Computed example of a mutant assay.
Amino acid sequence: MNSDSDQIILAQPRGFCAGVDRAINIVNEALQRFGAPIYVRHEIVHNVYVVEELRTKGAIFVEELAEVPKGAIVVFSAHGVSQEVRRDAAARGLQIYDATCPLVSKVHVEVVKMCKDGFTVLMIGHAGHPEVEGTMGQVNAGIFLIESLADVAKLSFPAQTKLAFVTQTTLSVDETKEIVDALTQKFPQIIKPRKQDICYATQNRQDAVKFMAPQVDVVIVVGSKMSSNSNRLRELAEKLGVPAYMVDSPDQLQADWFVGKKRVGLTAGASAPETLAQAIVQRIQELGPRKVHSLPGVVEDTVFSLPKSLVD
Rank of each mutant, 00 (worst) to 15 (best):
Q278F: 01
T302V: 15
V247N: 04
D256V: 08
I284H: 09
V292I: 15
A268Y: 02
V222C: 00
W257C: 07
E235Q: 01
Q252M: 13
S294E: 14
D301M: 15
A255P: 03
D256Q: 12
Q282M: 14
I220N: 01
R263T: 07
E235S: 00
T275E: 12
P243T: 11
V264N: 11
E274N: 11
I220L: 04
K261H: 09
T267N: 05
G297A: 11
A255M: 10
R232Q: 09
S224N: 10
K239E: 14
D256L: 07
S294D: 12
L276I: 14
E286I: 06
S249R: 07
L240V: 10
D251I: 10
A270R: 05
N231P: 06
K225S: 08
V299T: 15
W257M: 06
L276H: 11
R234H: 01
S294M: 08
Q254W: 08
L276G: 11
Q285H: 09
R283F: 06
A255V: 12
P289E: 14
Q282Y: 13
S227C: 03
V264G: 09
S227E: 05
P273Y: 02
A277F: 01
E286M: 08
S224G: 14
S230D: 03
L276F: 12
G265M: 13
V264A: 12
L266H: 05
M226I: 09
L295Q: 14
D251M: 11
L287F: 15
P250K: 04
L266C: 12
V292A: 14
P296C: 11
Q254F: 08
D251W: 08
V298D: 10
S294T: 10
D301F: 15
V219F: 06
K262D: 00
A244E: 02
G241F: 03
S249V: 02
P243M: 11
Q254C: 08
L266K: 02
G260S: 07
